[in-house]
Design a binder for these strands. Structure first.
Length: 268
DNA sequence: ACACTAACCTGCAAGC
DNA sequence: TGCTTGCAGGTTAGTG
């Protein structure tokens, strides 16, 4: 479920309930995630205040007094604020009770997510490219880093060293808006087109954040509500259907093991 | 350095 | 109805 807009939506949903609160109790029901949850997590963080919440790429960072917890939602993860007596669901792996009575539940059927504690910097954040909505990310960067690259442009913009936070949904949508075929070689695209593409990446991510993310299957924000960007998707998940612009049939191919839908007439 | 593949895991939908 | 197959929002580790 989670690309950058969904993570941002989750952050905004849970922040009011937990920022500034003391962690009273953490229960780990299933610690076998992407990386094992620290076996001593509870004794390490219980009693500490969550001073600040932030996002980097698709990671959520909960800053505590003596370290931080880094949470990733993987493919199927979600964080929700629930009342303490709410029935535990299957795949609710971690729950965190706060001093104000709020409880955060981490739910992740596929367990590709993570929940890591560190007193210092997190290794996962060490080699990430710029945030897509920052000024450090622009068409010039895409152009410069793509020279002589043979990889297709879609996996290129999904590469976290190039720019973070662009997943399969929004990469597909930004390429459609830019009129660029997802399988075009990254090194074979002009500066002018990359400037447009960077602009559309920012545009599509910002629009999705405003609408609370894209709800596929069961994505919900921190309050259990769905996102509405799905209604705006032009190509993602629409292989074989009609192009919203030219009415032609949308094609579906695989690039880097990810399904990629595009319009062969509108995208070149 | 780069290009590409397999892998992690569960649930669901489609096909037989 | 029931079984098998393939696919799903991400990222890393390993190959050549």
């Amino acid at each position: 479920m989670p690309e950058l807009p969904e993570v941002e939506t989750t952050l905004r949903g849970i922040e009011p309930a937990i920022a500034g609160q003391v962690i009273r109790r953490i229960k780990v029901h299933q610690g076998s995630l992407r990386w094992p949850v620290n076996a001593n997590l509870a004794q390490l963080v219980e009693g500490q205040t969550i001073t600040h919440l932030s996002r980097r790429a698709k990671y959520l960072l909960m800053q505590l007094e003596h370290g931080s917890m880094l949470v990733h939602l993987g493919m199927s993860g979600s964080l929700r604020i629930v009342q303490a007596n709410t029935q535990l669901r299957k795949h609710d792996h971690i729950e965190m009770q706060m001093s104000n009575g709020s409880t955060v539940r981490f739910h992740d059927p596929r367990r590709f997510g993570c929940w890591l504690w560190s007193e210092g910097a997190h290794q996962q954040l060490a080699h990430l490219g710029p945030e897509p909505l920052s000024e450090d990310f622009n068409g010039h960067r895409l152009y410069q880093l793509s020279r002589k690259r043979k990889v297709a442009v879609k996996p290129f913009i999904m590469d976290n060293k190039i720019v973070v936070g662009v997943g399969n949904i929004y990469a597909s949508e930004a390429l459609f808006r830019s009129g660029i075929r997802p399988d075009r070689g990254a090194g074979n695209i002009s500066l002018q087109r990359y400037i447009e593409l960077a602009g559309h990446i920012k545009e599509v991510l910002a629009a999705a954040i405003v609408q609370g993310g894209t709800t596929l299957r069961d994505f919900v924000n921190g309050n259990g509500e769905p996102g509405y960007f799905q209604q705006t998707l032009a190509v993602y998940g629409r292989g074989g259907e009609h192009c919203v612009a030219c009415k032609g049939l949308l094609k579906e191919i695989k690039l880097g093991q990810r399904s990629s839908v595009f319009c062969a007439r509108c995208q070149r």
